[in-house]
Nucleic acid binder design. Structure first.
Lengths: 126, 126
DNA sequence: GTAACTGCAAAATATTTGCATCCTT
DNA sequence: AAGGATGCAAATATTTTGCAGTTAC
């Protein structure tokens, strides 16, 4: 099993995600860290952290990949349904601490689900 | 206001979507139609048909753009919540004819929502 | 020491744009 | 005729891959 090493890149990214419950897109991270680490490394570290269950990822309205703390998504125990909010004005993307029942559908076996709510965040409601 | 012209490209794409309630990714359409029309045209016609309210689009698990009939999504009246199913094995993507209540969240004004259910379709359940 | 990790360059993939030309109304 | 639509090439953007060199354990 791949043990994840505490490299400088890993520590940097972990610290960033420790400081917020919001989700961050890979594009933003690559831009923000382009002096500190290579974009390939950003992609690879995020993937590793997701494999380890430390982060989780989802696709935003824009088709970009977003990451957030695994438990930033659901407070106590993890649900397979990840509800996320994305502000259409400022782009702020947050994990919502609400539990939603995954609907069951005949003819299909549902493994997981993603719910993306689009609207305006507190700051952009004017 | 832009009146949409009944060009050969428009007719071709309309016919394709008339024949199914499933969603189709732009990538598949571009590939399937590359002898009949240019990929740029595929992108532009789909955009126009969405503007006209004939199709609607959403982002799949893979980050790709998918289109389906507007009313393939919800049977009678249109909900802002679009529930879609995507098969993790064969990639089949369908609009689900179920109504789901959009949850309201404090501090946010929710305009619309996308629910993507991932699992296995009937054919891939073995 | 060795397997994991990183950086760099290049490839792969998806989508958009500019512009000249063509077609629908 | 005029404005919308198309094709083609090139640009943009995101993500992935290969490989040589470095680092954590």
């Amino acid at each position: 099993m791949g043990i994840i090493r505490k490299t400088k890149s890993v520590k940097t990214l972990l610290k960033i995600f420790e400081q917020t419950n919001n989700a961050i897109s890979v594009v933003i991270l690559v831009e923000q860290l382009h002096q500190k680490m290579n974009k390939t490394t950003v992609y690879r570290v995020l993937e590793r952290l997701e494999d380890e269950g430390i982060l989780h990822s989802f696709t935003g309205k824009d088709g970009l990949k977003w990451y957030a703390k695994y438990n930033g998504c659901s407070s106590s125990n993890h649900m397979d349904l990840h509800p996320h909010f994305q502000c259409r004005d400022c782009g702020k993307t947050a994990c919502l601490p609400i539990d939603i029942l995954i609907p069951s559908v005949s003819n299909y076996r549902i493994d997981s689900a993603e719910l993306l709510l689009i609207g305006q965040c507190e700051d952009c409601l004017s």
